[in-house]
Design a protein around this nucleic acid. Structure first.
Lengths: 102, 102
DNA sequence: TCCATAAATCGAAATATCTCGATATACCAA
DNA sequence: TTGGTATATCGAGATATTTCGATTTATGGA
């Protein structure tokens, strides 16, 4: 739990927005045939919704992953990203512990 | 509650450390004579502990204030800063609501 | 094997943040 | 009013972040 890295990853409106989008798979187009069982979303779908370049989104997802907010799973040529709820919860607890007085 | 500005203010180790120091007035030298009733801490004390320049600390305290994490109270030539516990709590709630799935 | 597609990495320009010393402002005391 | 002390603001250089297009790497299919 590197709070420095996590806060830094959150310090960007689009990255926060992506984390929100990933709360609900239905924010994105349906899964590709043969990947219906996966909960994650591929980079291209996120890019399309964010309207930023492919390299930027790939970079953003890498930062969110390093921060522990998402998990990546490679299937063939696709990387599927999904939220890491446990780590997100752990981050919230850590921030609370650091910020709150008692 | 401008979450953008707040996260930005937190995105710096020394500013977070100052917020922690301010949890307990005894992290700093005793109040100056005639100011024993004030809970806040003057800029000079914070600067001494942080070992950064006066202008940097003044700037940091301004950012923390804009973010709502501290309140400033001017008494004579001193500005006394103290935590704004209500706003800190409000920020934590806002981050939780934005980050957490349910 | 060769090509197409998805994603990651690289290099760079634009912008923002950090941090300083110098200066300005506000206030108090003599 | 003059001088001293505390804080805020200004301007600038160093460093970091943002975002892009181009390239590289990985994979799968014909």
């Amino acid at each position: 739990m590197d709070i420095e890295r996590s806060i830094s990853a959150l310090n960007n409106p689009m990255r926060r927005r992506i984390l929100e989008w990933l709360k609900d798979r239905s924010n994105f187009p349906p899964a590709l045939p043969g990947h219906e069982d996966l909960e994650g979303v591929c980079v291209a779908y996120i890019q399309e919704k964010a309207k930023l370049s492919q390299s930027t989104i790939s970079n953003y997802m890498g930062l969110l992953k390093q921060a522990g907010f998402v998990k990546a799973e490679r299937h063939g040529q696709w990387t599927f990203y999904r939220r890491d709820e446990e780590n997100i919860q752990a981050f919230l607890t850590a921030v609370k512990d650091e910020l709150l007085k008692m």
